[in-house]
Design a protein around this nucleic acid. Sequence first.
DNA 1: ACAGGAAAGTTTACACTGTTAACATAATGT
DNA 2: ACATTATGTTAACAGTGTAAACTTTCCTGT
Lengths: 228, 228
Amino acid sequence: MLTTPLSLSSDADPAERHPATRADRARARSAARREAERLQLRDHVLQIAQRQLVAHGYQRFSLREVAEEAGYSPTALYRHFADRDALLKEVCNLYFARFSAVLAAADRSASAPRARLMAQAQAYVQFAIENPALYRLMFLERPEMGMGLTMEEVASDAGFGVLGQAVGALAATGGIGTLAVPQATMVLWAGVHGLAAMVVTMNLLPAEHFLAMTRAMSVTMLDGLQHG
Amino acid sequence: MLTTPLSLSSDADPAERHPATRADRARARSAARREAERLQLRDHVLQIAQRQLVAHGYQRFSLREVAEEAGYSPTALYRHFADRDALLKEVCNLYFARFSAVLAAADRSASAPRARLMAQAQAYVQFAIENPALYRLMFLERPEMGMGLTMEEVASDAGFGVLGQAVGALAATGGIGTLAVPQATMVLWAGVHGLAAMVVTMNLLPAEHFLAMTRAMSVTMLDGLQHG
DNA sequence: ACAGGAAAGTTTACACTGTTAACATAATGT
DNA sequence: ACATTATGTTAACAGTGTAAACTTTCCTGT
């Protein structure tokens, strides 16, 4: 476990591109192939886990069922993931990247700071509407999974850099009153998070309803920040 | 099961205050006593369940453990509660009353509509800080338990009558711009709910932090409503 | 007063869950 | 060729919620 990645990395070392013996090359390629297989398996399991998570929801997500669908015995997964929570954490991370990409795309869809923030809020709630189980896992159920950071860190630049930057841009145009940028960011985030939490919790109401409410909330908060 | 409550209610019928025979009176008192015992047991179990819920959190709440502490076999509770969720729902209802009482008290602590809403928001988050497991159960985990209502119904008069009334009072003084009262109520609720959800989810941060953020959020939203 | 029946509770059992330990086996490094 | 490591599997443990069958206790109608 220790030697394999080391020999692999030393193989990638440009100083020794072509190892001396053919046996060395074969060994390196073998290790690389095994590593690739391992990663492929991890990806496969992660995809199944993600599917089952959105299908059955967090509460009924079962490690054994994932193993069964993947074609392994229940305990086999423990070779690749520490435990159930570690597996879910990886699913989480996958979607965290996707989520911040969605927010970034929404941010780019407008130019004025206020419009950027409105678009972000809309995309934020839209994500929660489309992936309720995932939003729940990321932000409600297991906070350690989503982030081991404090709220300020998150708001500043860790995962929600786009939000913080847009708020900064708004502040530059005088759109923020007395509040500091981190505080304003947190307020905006918490407001939209409240709507997203409602989306996730009560899945009965139509999506448009929540989106309309998101608009109302966004303009209210932005107006409030301005005339603060 | 059918005859007992009927005879009891017919006993309470003012038309026949004193039943004819002594046997009838004895029978009625016996039924009443048994009913009282039953209610007392329910209360006992509910108190234990509530204690274990706040102690271990929702995820690790176990029906069997409640039964054990109450001194019953696991399946005995099924005579009094349909299933685990029904039991939790009753715990929920207990605290729902307490919660709305807290909000009402906060509302009475001030007179101006804006001050009333600020006080309610503070009390709201304070409740989440003090009873995270319960807030989670009531508003995050099992929405059907807290309420089978739509958001508008809740906001109007079902459980959050105090909130809706305060918003109405604010609207009367012209404190609300273009938004209608139900919408404004929902926005305010969602904003504070977002903070409460954060409190419940990441229990690491100090309470004062969240309370300060609650103030910032409240003034921002109220300002935003006014200059809408 | 006594048979009949409902109510309350217990034991047993089932189908699950996550997780650990012991074992098997195949691929690899020396 | 031998030892080791990686990758599985099976067996087992301690939990969980819940349903069915059985006991016991108490109440009721005749």
